[in-house]
Simulated scan of single mutants.
Amino acid sequence: MTYFNDLLDGYQRFRTADYRRQHERWAQLKDGQAPKVMVIGCADSRVEPSQIFDTLPGEIFVVRNVANLVPPYETTPGHHGVSAALEFAVTKLGVEEIVVIGHGKCGGAHAALTEMFHDAERGDGGFVHDWVSLLDGAREKVKAKFGDSPDLGREMELETVRTSLANLMTFPFVKSRVEAGTLKLHGAYFAITDGELWTMGEDGEFVSQLKSAPALA
């Protein structure tokens, strides 16, 4: 079990090891960042994009939240954290690719599928239910197609990726760049049980990045 004091110990190891080994890299980053890829992932502690993709500091601009969701474009008053990060990455940093990565055993996808937070006490906030309601349409679609299949949970996890990619295209500054060919969108899925990475094709199906592996519907 890791606590804050353990994190401080980790910092000391980082400062005396990785930071020194990558000193030139950190020196390059001191005046700003210029990542070409934005990754939208889940806040789940088991799914760390920089580790999965083996990237260096400054290589990917990462946003993480419950169930790796992108809300649809809207301009109503509020605090739109994901939308703000997306706007910054696309219009200011000029990222050229956006990757939405879902994962196995996702608690957010499970919450949306089972509506387990539907009756949560408002004193607790009700934030989870409100957030995963973005997947209401995905839940109905998956249930209608797969019923009581044992793969229902996994299919819901895949659908979270498809939903976020569809919502990305509702943002005018994303849509215009995709259509102009200056921005590409990608879907991915990381299976925690075996560490396998799947990527989504243009047909919406997922194909393993390991050799001789079947596709995920």
Rank of each mutant, 00 (worst) to 15 (best):
F146C: 01
T160S: 13
L134K: 12
R154E: 09
A138M: 00
E159R: 06
S149L: 06
D130W: 04
A138L: 00
L158C: 09
M156H: 11
V161G: 03
D136F: 13
L165M: 12
D130N: 14
G153Q: 02
V161S: 06
M156S: 10
V132Q: 03
E155Y: 08
E159L: 07
E140H: 07
V161T: 13
V132H: 05
R154S: 01
L165Q: 08
D130Q: 15
W131V: 07
S149V: 05
H129M: 00
S164I: 02
G137S: 09
S164W: 05
K143C: 06
W131R: 04
E157I: 08
K141M: 09
T160A: 11
E159H: 07
V132A: 03
K145H: 14
S164T: 02
F146H: 12
L165H: 07
V132F: 04
G147H: 13
R154H: 05
G147Q: 14
G153F: 06
L158K: 07
R139G: 03
V132C: 06
R139Q: 11
A166V: 09
D151E: 12
L152A: 07
R154M: 13
F146W: 13
A166H: 11
R154W: 02
D151A: 08
A138G: 00
D130M: 10
D148P: 09
G153Y: 03
R162P: 12
S164D: 04
G147D: 14
G147Y: 08
S164G: 01
L134P: 14
T160Y: 05
R162T: 14
W131T: 08
T163F: 02
S164H: 03
R162G: 10
L134R: 14
D148A: 15
A144Q: 15
D151L: 07
S133L: 03
A166W: 10
S133G: 02
L158V: 10
S149C: 03
A138T: 00
P150R: 01
K141A: 12
R154L: 14
T160E: 10
S133R: 13
D136Q: 15
L165D: 08
V142Y: 02
V142F: 01
D151N: 01
S149G: 02
F146K: 00
D136W: 13
T163N: 11
S149F: 01
R162M: 10
E155D: 04
A138N: 00
K143H: 09
L134T: 14
E155T: 00
G137E: 13
L135P: 03
A166F: 07
P150A: 05
S149W: 04
E140R: 09
D151Y: 02
G147S: 12
S164E: 08
K143W: 04
G153I: 07
M156I: 06
K143A: 00
F146N: 01
K141C: 10
W131H: 11
E157F: 04
L135R: 08
